[in-house]
Design a protein around this nucleic acid. Structure first.
Length: 1065
RNA sequence: GGGCCCGUAGCUUAGCCUGGUGGAGCGCACGGCUGAUAACCGUGAGGUCCUGCGUUCGAAUCGCAGCGGGCCCA
């Protein structure tokens, strides 16, 4: 049996119940199992990092995933998905360091790496558990029981195995490179981990004294004085023009400077030179080979051993001086210039950002502190041309926010440059949504990609499985746990994290002992192997062969550089093909002003707050419907509230007919669609047709992941077609109290629409869908699938589609709206019937619509009759007015113009028009009895409405509403006014719908009292009055008495519930 | 500084690919309905389509330049 719904839409209560229902019935698992063996759909969840709290962006991300998976599931796909968790890496180390109050790696070493790792592990697991509950509260169905976790042995093995593939294919390389380095975390930082924001740095110009020429300097500029001790060369652009200028410095001495011609003025101004003269102009190429004295050679004795020359490089820009200081140990491009020209790498800076002994007088000093020391030293040596400061964007460690430095270090790299071309061609095979995500954005990123530094000098991560012999230097890469156990001195039970693996040694062929390289993997490498790690590969191959590669993944646009890239790179190394076949890139959540949400701005919105206030379905529908998935989402509470109202309307539409159905013991099993198909009214066929159109719209939208369009289509159907129209049309049918086939048909049609609707909304608002389904379907049929989500997606039924009817209904609605508009003009409420409406259609289509839907129109316009004119026929009852045009009459009739105007006004407009239409002119008689000839330009004709008629245009013609009052109409109008007030009072007394009353109505107007009396039977029936007395002079005793003013007539109405009056007897 | 995306009513947006008088919803004002009633519905006002230049008979739409926002990079 259907259950009556009396309550308002209470999202939190419904969702809590639904969650419990899913839990108790194991709904998620049973749905997945029900699709086993169907076409495969392998989805890989991009693993969120276990920071502890989901934010709006991750909520949106998971809701998109959940909606798409639910949709595919209902469309009979066998879905493989596991929730994923990214649990290693520096961010967690930094958090744990914070909890433990640590400042540096030394604190960790003192505390013990094993203890530290345990803390990290526990922290990650705890956060994972918290976040799981948060995601679940959004109604997200993923395999939360059995997620993939990057800290698990089988996952670590997948990473190890992948590295071994790289090694076997000669794509793994150990080498010295310049990397982003965090001096606090004392580790290399991936390009993708660098966080750029603005800081203030020194900005200095330095003169390097040439060896070849007296008193001549090449001028360079830098924001990192601390790299000057490491300077090894100067680079100029080969084709720029440089000038050699003789200039007078502030001390009044002349010196010769070399710099880019265009920048001479500016630099000399910076250095407060008073006068200058250009001695010579040359190209950068001409400068190549010149040598100079290192300005700090006396302080850094090692520098005295090196040669310092000028080289050319294409990357040099025409900014500042056009001459670039080269320190191969501290810059990526510097390093490349060094490699090309055989310049030694001199890098006297340690991992902690302090100078090493090689740095001479600066040894032991932190580079940041050394900046000022070095500026002073340069000043003393007279080579500091100018000093100022600059605000610029600079790279920082993305977790601890320490400014990065570039450091030449020995690291492990994946040789992306070797596989880049293949990556680019794989990108083309992938389906990208939107298309530009792949063809423009991702392609650009991959084209610019460099070799991937995968090593980190940290603790909490997947240990890099490279063992190196201390004697001969040869290396071995271990691919699995078993391999390690077999090769090493390990026992059977080993832990794959640091520090345990650090102690394991492998015997080298040379007889020496191999021990592990101390590094751990860059966390991006962890998630990079997710698509096969989640399938248990390489341990088990069966799932891999069945599912891989992924059919679909979706993440935010920041993952272009991140997971889209790292997965592709790792997969090319391992399998030489893309690990995904289609990718949807979604947007970012911003605040209502379009600014990014950040803790420091205080504009962060917690998704759980939205759930708390409005419910998960509202949050889901909001994020899915507000913008296209790939556009950024400007979060706006007003928008959330609006989505909530829409869901509320759906709820009300759904609960409206149920009390009647329950009252009538309506059983959808007894009343099949077949049974009623012959008795369908036009409006019934119409809503069924519209329902089909919506299914198609949703399918079309979903076929290219336009989730916003799918939801908007459903929403429009609910609001426009169901709530605003169909429900209005069938309300009177649901009130009929007898066994009425017409009522049953309406019930059945509504029922069918609701059941279909519950399936259509299931992917998007799964709780509301389940709530409706359980009542509508499961309460009626215990053999139906246990959850709405186990149902098949509704298939469009072509035979139900009637496009002509849809179009006619559209016209009918327009006529009803326009007649309401016209009613407002003559101030006649809808409650008062009108004697007729007259429809003047533009064409046959509109005319047919009126014919076809006459009863709907009469109902909804509350008209006693509808007159339909032929297309373009003018309504015969319209009046005509002749309007003279003085600007045409004046010039012709001069003095008599006024007379002519009056004559036109007082003429018979119809005759005048007929004559002008026929002959182009007409004659009117003037006051002096003479005649004047009026031509067509002198007069305009306008149709006029009878006094009690108002008109309005609808799409397809004009509608006239005749509001002429007759006594019948007044009777009915007043009767309905009375009824409305009695109903209002019944409501105030909180009477049930069936309860009978006694009512006394005193009307202070003889005529109106008579009019109302005429409708006595009608009124009694409508208000369920067993006793009804209407009169001008009656007593109005009753349980509830109220004074009213109806259209200016005072009335006094008394009602008494019969139960209480019978109790008095 | 570069790549990609976004900019339409107070707010959220459709239309842009394929040029032809800019549509909705919310909010606001006024009104209707009163057996969905703490619900539902109608009408109305409200727009430099970010700015400028160009192409075109015609530009929200195409092109160029700029401004603002976002992501990514340098």
């Amino acid at each position: 049996m259907l259950q009556e719904i009396t309550s308002q839409y209470n999202a939190n209560k419904i969702e809590k119940n639904i969650h419990r229902f899913w839990e108790e019935n194991n709904a998620y698992k049973r749905v997945r199992e029900s699709r086993e063996g169907a076409s495969k759909f392998f989805f890989v969840d991009g693993p969120p990092y276990t920071t502890g709290h989901i934010h709006l962006g991750t909520a949106w991300n998971k809701v998109i995933k959940d909606s798409i998976l639910r949709y595919f599931s209902m469309n009979n796909y066998d879905i493989h998905e596991r929730a994923g968790w990214d649990m290693h890496g520096l961010p967690i180390e930094v958090k744990v360091e914070g909890i433990l109050g640590f400042q540096s790696k030394k604190d960790i070493e003192t505390y013990g790496v094993g203890n530290f790792i345990n803390k990290c592990k526990n922290f990650a697991i705890e956060q994972k558990d918290n976040m799981t509950e948060q995601f679940k509260s959004l109604g997200v169905w993923l395999d939360w029981e059995n997620p993939y976790m990057t800290l698990r042995d089988e996952y670590i093995e997948a990473a190890w195995w992948t590295l071994k593939q790289a090694y076997d294919k000669d794509l793994l390389e150990e080498g010295q490179r310049v990397v982003n380095w965090c001096p606090r975390c004392e580790t290399a930082i991936a390009d993708s981990e660098v966080d750029y924001f603005e800081i203030t740095d020194p900005s200095i110009y330095i003169k390097f004294r040439l060896k070849e020429e007296e008193n001549t300097y090449v001028v360079i500029w830098t924001t990192t004085p601390w790299t000057i001790p490491s300077n090894m060369a100067v680079a100029v652009h080969p084709s720029f023009e440089y000038s050699k200028v003789k200039a007078t410095n502030p001390e009044g001495n002349d010196e010769v400077l070399i710099l880019a011609s265009d920048l001479v003025e500016d630099v000399l101004k910076q250095g407060r030179y008073t006068d200058y003269e250009v001695l010579e102009k040359m190209s950068g190429k001409d400068l190549e080979g010149l040598s100079y004295h290192h300005p700090l050679a006396d302080a850094v004795s090692k520098q005295a051993e090196f040669e310092h020359n000028i080289y050319t490089a294409d990357y040099v820009t025409a900014e500042k001086t056009g001459c670039v200081h080269i320190a191969p140990g501290h810059g990526m491009e510097d390093f490349e210039v060094g490699v090309e020209n055989g310049i030694p790498v001199f890098c006297p800076v340690g991992a902690d950002g302090k100078y090493l002994d090689e740095a001479g007088k600066y040894s032991g000093e932190h580079i940041r502190d050394a900046n000022q020391t070095i500026i002073n030293d340069l000043k003393h040596r007279g080579v500091l041309l100018a000093e100022e400061s600059i605000n610029h964007r600079y790279g920082h460690c993305w977790r601890c926010k320490t400014p990065n430095i570039y450091l030449a270090t020995v690291q492990w790299f994946l040789k992306i440059s070797d596989i880049k071309q293949n990556m680019l061609s794989e990108i083309q095979k992938v389906d990208w949504y939107p298309e530009w995500a792949g063809t423009s954005r991702f392609k650009d990123w991959v084209e610019g990609a460099r070799d991937w530094c995968i090593s980190r000098q940290r603790y909490w991560g997947i240990p890099i499985p490279v063992w190196k012999c201390s004697s001969c230097g040869s290396i071995d890469v271990v691919g699995t746990k078993q391999e390690l156990i077999k090769k090493s001195n390990a026992g059977k039970h080993i832990e794959l994290h640091r520090p345990y693996v650090d102690d394991l040694t492998i015997e080298c062929d040379c007889g020496g002992s191999m021990s592990r390289v101390e590094d751990v993997f860059d966390v991006w490498f962890d998630s990079a192997v997710a698509s096969w790690a989640t399938l248990g590969y390489p341990q088990s191959e069966e799932d891999f062969h069945r599912w891989w590669p992924a059919d679909f993944i979706t993440e935010g646009h920041d993952q272009t550089r991140g997971w889209f890239y790292s997965q592709l790179g790792a997969s090319m190394v391992a399998f030489e093909q893309s690990p995904y076949e289609s990718v949807m890139m979604h947007g970012f959540t911003l605040d209502k002003y379009g600014k990014k949400m950040s803790k420091s701005q205080g504009n962060v919105v917690d998704p759980l707050e939205v759930v708390d206030k409005y419910g998960a379905d509202t949050l889901r529908a909001y994020v899915l419907s507000t913008s296209a998935p790939w556009d950024d989402l400007k979060f706006n509470w007003e928008g959330v509230n609006q989505v909530y109202s829409n869901l509320n309307i759906l709820w009300n539409v759904y609960r409206f007919p149920i009390p009647y159905m329950v009252l009538d013991n309506f059983d959808p099993k007894q009343v099949s669609m077949d049974l009623i198909s012959k008795h369908l009214r036009k409006e019934d066929k119409w809503i069924l047709s519209r329902m089909q159109s919506v299914i198609k719209d949703v399918d079309d939208a979903m076929s290219d992941y336009q989730l916003h369009k799918a939801i908007r289509a459903i929403n429009e159907f609910v609001l426009e077609d169901l709530s605003r129209w169909y429900i209005q049309l069938i309300r009177p049918r649901t009130w009929v109290e007898s066994e009425d086939p017409d009522k049953l048909v309406a019930y059945r049609v509504l029922y069918d629409v609701f059941v279909t609707l519950s399936k259509l909304i299931a992917p998007f608002t799964p709780h509301m869908a389940e709530e409706m389904y359980q009542n509508l379907v499961r309460n009626v049929d215990q053999y139906a699938p246990i959850t709405v989500h186990m149902n098949d997606w509704p298939l469009p039924e072509e035979e139900k589609v009637d496009k002509e009817l849809e179009s006619h209904m559209q016209i009918a609605r327009s006529i009803v709206e326009s007649s309401a508009n016209a009613r407002q003009k003559v101030k006649r409420k809808l409650r008062w019937p009108v004697s007729r409406i007259v429809v003047a259609p533009d064409d046959k289509e509109a005319s047919n619509a009126v014919d076809n839907l006459r009863s709907v129109l009469m109902d909804q316009t509350n008209a006693k009759d509808i007159e339909l004119l032929d297309p373009d026929e003018e309504w015969s009852e319209l009046g005509l007015e002749a309007i003279p045009d003085p600007s045409a009459i004046g010039p012709v009739f001069k003095k008599n113009a006024g007379d002519v105007i009056n004559a036109i006004k007082s003429s018979n407009p119809s005759e005048l028009k007929e004559s002008i239409d026929s002959y182009g002119e007409s004659s009117v008689s003037l006051s002096d009895s003479s005649a004047a000839t009026v031509t067509s330009d002198m007069v305009n004709f306008q149709r006029t409405l009878p006094d009690t008629v108002a008109s309005a245009e609808f799409e397809g013609g004009i509608v006239y509403v005749d509001a002429t009052l007759t006594s019948d109409i007044e009777s009915e109008g007043f009767a309905r006014e009375v009824i409305r007030r009695v109903q209002d009072m019944r409501k105030e007394l909180d009477l049930s719908v069936e309860e009978n009353v006694k009512s006394l109505i005193k009307i202070d107007d003889e005529r109106v009292a008579e009019l109302v009396k005429n409708m006595e039977t009608y009124i009694s029936k409508e208000v369920r009055a067993d006793t009804l007395v209407i009169g001008t002079n009656i007593s109005t005793d009753g349980d509830y008495v109220k004074d009213w003013n109806v259209e200016g007539i005072p009335m006094e109405i008394a009602i008494s519930p019969l139960e209480s009056s019978s109790g008095n007897v």
